[in-house]
Amino acid sequence: MKMLYYFIGTAAIALFTSCEKELEVYHAGAGLNFYYATPGDTLVSYSFVYGPATTTRDTVWLEVETIGRLSNTERPVVIEQLLTGTGDALPGVHYVPFDDASLRAAYTVPARQARARVPVILKRDASLQAQQVTLLARVAPTGEFPLINPGRNRVKILFSDQIEKPASWNESAYLFPFGVYGPAKHRFMIEQTGEKWDDAYFNNVLGLTKEAPYYNQNYDNAYCDYLVGVLRRALQAHNAERQARGEDVLKEADDTPVSF
C-alpha cells in the first residue's frame, strides 16, 4: 500500500511537470560575457611594427555583452588575465593592468545598454621585439554580473613588436593567392606596396577572411592575381639586385627562398 502511494505521488508530479509548455520569464539574474561577431573574434593579433615608430602604446578593443535585464545604472566590468604558462604578457610591462585606476571609467556597461567596448592598452616594451606575448583575458564574475557564459569567456590577444602572421593568411584555402607565409615575405610585401597586409587589409580591401568561406563581397580574384603578379615581378627585380651585389636571393630565416 505504501508503494502504491509512492507511485501515485510520483506519477502526479510527472504529469504536472512533463506537459509544461510555457517558457518562464528570465529571472536567473545578470551576467556578462564577451561578444563574438564571428567565432574568430576569440583571437586578436596585433603588432606595433605596422604603426609609427614613435608609438609607445596602442589599444585593442574587446566587446562585452550582458545577460539578463538591462540596468538603469552603469555597471562595472571586471576583466582579468588567465595565465597560459607560455609567454604570458606581464601586467604593467606589456599592458596596462585591467584594474588600473586610469581604466576604471572605461570598464563599464552604460545604463540601458547590453553591449560595451572595453579597452586593452598594449605597451610597446622592448622585449616585444624579441618575442610575441599572450594575453588571455576573461570576464570575472562580480556582484553586478554574477553569471558568466563559459562558452564566451575567453579572448586571446597575441601581440609583439614583430611582424605577425595575420589570421586571414590562410594558405590552405583554395582561393588564397599569396602562398605560404613567412616573415621575410610579409616584410617584403609591406615594403613594396606600403600596405600592412594585416587582417584589416585582407578583409576590407582584398575580401579575404579567416572564416569559411574565406572571402567576402570585396573579393576580386583578378585583383588578387594582379597583386601576386606585382609582387612576383618586384621580387624578381629585388633578387636580381641582391645577386648583383653578391648576395643570395631573399630567404626566410629557415633558408626557404621567398616566392609568389
Binding site: Y219, N221, A222, Y223, V230, R232
Partner: peptide, 21 residues
C-alpha cells in the same frame, strides 16, 4: 585569363585582366 566558371564562381571580379600567369 579571367576565371569565370566552375568553383571560381565563388569569387567575383570587375573583369579586368591582371598579368599572364
Amino acid at each position: 585569363t579571367e576565371h569565370n566558371a566552375g568553383i571560381m564562381t565563388a569569387g567575383t571580379s570587375v573583369g579586368k585582366y591582371s598579368f599572364p600567369k
